[in-house]
């Protein structure tokens, strides 16, 4: 009986041996792995993974941590603030607070805005630039080709770093699409001319100029630049929402502009209201 079985399986013996050997190796390894898993186990708060699931997963770094996982760890282990995730916004803060049984005040939703309107038609160039198409590099060559030493160079360094493609180059000037902006602030650091600011989303009136030059100089280089006429400051005297910083009018973003007539009255038309203009 055994002999017959042996004769039948004889030709298959090499296969059987191989299968047996592989199976043994497989079991051996899994056993070793099981032991290793037991011995080297790291106790991890399961909530970290779950908080990480709640986060948007953009890994944008706006919270100041290396990524979503890092922030999740900080939230659970180190009691980090719950409102630091800009892409998640107020909703996420509420969700996190509920999940962790804490209370947290939602941070104000902010969006990036480019404080320049110096499009190709409006702003003059001083020279023909030939080199790397990158703002940081262009800024170092002769101070940039825009005649205005404050204005947007238009080589889209901000658009390149934007993780959500919220920045578009329109007529040589960067423009942020607020609905796409997750206020991570990467563009703010990318701009060599510091033209991009994070502002509260609720503010809709902006002065899109950063030139601190005197009016005549501004007028020489750009038709859309703030000439420092102070008209907007005077028109908003009571509410004090606009102030002069040198020769440049600026919005006080802690307040909201009530007298929106300044948008119409501004001589170079460098004040916009996003509820109308967009």
């Amino acid at each position: 009986m055994i002999e017959t079985v042996l004769t039948i399986i004889e030709p298959y013996l090499p296969i059987i041996k191989t299968v047996f050997a592989i199976t043994c190796i497989g079991f051996g390894c899994s056993f070793a792995l099981a032991i290793a898993a037991k011995f080297f186990e790291v106790k991890d708060d399961p909530r970290i993974g779950e908080v990480n699931e709640l986060l948007p997963g953009a890994n944008c770094g706006a919270c100041g941590y290396a990524g979503c996982m890092d922030y999740a760890k900080a939230v659970v282990m180190d009691d980090a603030e719950l409102n630091r995730c800009a892409p998640g916004g107020a909703d996420l803060t509420a969700t996190l607070a509920e999940y962790l049984g804490k209370t947290a005040e939602a941070a104000e939703k902010q969006v990036a805005i480019v404080l320049c309107m110096g499009t190709n038609d409006a702003a003059k160039c001083r020279f023909e630039y030939n080199g790397i198409a990158d703002c940081r590099a262009a800024h170092l060559v002769g101070g940039g080709d825009k005649a205005c030493t404050y204005g947007c160079l238009g080589y889209s360094s901000c658009a390149t770093v934007c993780p959500t493609q919220a920045i578009e180059m329109v007529d040589g000037v960067a423009k942020v699409h607020p609905e796409l902006c997750i206020s991570c602030g990467k563009c703010v650091t990318a701009c060599p001319r510091n033209l991009i600011k994070l502002v509260p989303e609720k503010n809709t009136v902006h002065i899109l100029c950063s030139s601190n030059d005197k009016g005549p100089i501004v007028r020489k280089v750009c038709t859309k630049g703030c000439i420092g006429c102070t008209m907007c400051v005077k028109l908003t005297k009571e509410e004090e929402s606009v102030f002069m910083d040198g020769f440049l009018a600026k919005i006080d973003y802690s307040k909201e502009v009530q007298n929106k007539v300044i948008v119409e009255k501004c001589p170079p038309k460098c004040i916009i209201d996003t509820t109308i203009n967009n």
Binding site: G131, I132, D134, R136, A137, L140, V141
Partner: peptide, 13 residues
Amino acid sequence: RPLVQHFRTAKAF
């Protein structure tokens, strides 16, 4: 290629 400009930018950074 604008090699020197690349290095200038890097050095400035």
